[in-house]
């Protein structure tokens, strides 16, 4: 099974990278961008039966720094017939 962990900066934490991306997009002529926040996507290949609690512990102990970051966990169901998780 596969799970995706999204790590994002907490609201209110200054995101210099997001701000630079914002400026770069505007420099390319894209209008109407009201904000950009950059985060991380971590894909985990896990043994069947890995519990939500296990994945959450991984996030708290390493994948996210909960001082400044939030995380969300998304389990990815295999697509029927695709043969891929």
């Amino acid at each position: 099974m596969k799970a995706r962990v999204f790590v994002t900066l907490k609201p209110g934490v200054l995101d210099p990278q997001g701000r630079a991306i914002h400026h770069a997009l505007e420099g390319l002529g894209f209008d109407g961008i009201e904000g950009v926040r950059a985060g991380k996507l971590i894909e985990l290949e896990l043994a069947e039966g890995t519990s939500d609690g296990d994945i959450e512990a991984m996030c708290r102990k390493l994948l996210a720094n909960t001082v400044i970051e939030n995380f969300t966990i998304e389990r990815v169901a295999p697509r029927p017939g695709s043969g891929q998780a």
Binding site: L14, P16, Q17, A20, N65, V67
Partner: peptide
Amino acid sequence: EAGLLPGALMRNAGL
């Protein structure tokens, strides 16, 4: 990161 000091060190504001 080890929790011996509070807070976090992030990317420099000027990048």
